[in-house]
């Protein structure tokens, strides 16, 4: 089994994280925001796997499985919230869902 190139892996993870973050910041549709958060989590998961491979530890992969589980739960909760927001505001544009008066 060839050793994973650590630097390349981390650069890829950082790139993915940045793409996800950018998406969260610029996309207004809540569904896309949720998908971008998913990308960021996977970027973090990738970083765990790369780090685990570097030190030959299984912990990285264990963590990745945890992250997958959390992500699944998060999607379930997140989609439910999206559903509620849509019912209340009749839109998924997260800029117009602010009800603050300030």
């Amino acid at each position: 089994m060839t050793v994973l190139p650590v630097n390349g892996g981390l650069v890829l993870a950082a790139g993915l994280f940045a793409i996800g973050l950018l998406g969260v910041l610029v996309r207004r549709n809540l569904l896309y925001t949720l998908m971008c958060v998913e990308i960021m989590m996977n970027a973090a998961g990738l970083a765990f796997v790369v780090a685990g491979a570097k030190w030959g530890q299984p912990d990285g992969q264990v963590f990745f499985i945890f992250i997958l589980t959390v992500a699944a739960a998060e999607v379930a909760v997140g989609l439910a919230l999206v559903n509620q927001i849509y019912r209340r505001f009749h839109t998924l544009d997260n800029d117009s869902t602010s009800s603050m008066r300030g």
Binding site: L21, V24, V26, R28, T33, N94, T97, S98
Partner: peptide, 17 residues
Amino acid sequence: LSLTQTGRVRWYAAWVT
């Protein structure tokens, strides 16, 4: 400071970043 409390999630995220 209250100018930053817009209720817009994307701005909050940006500030956290």
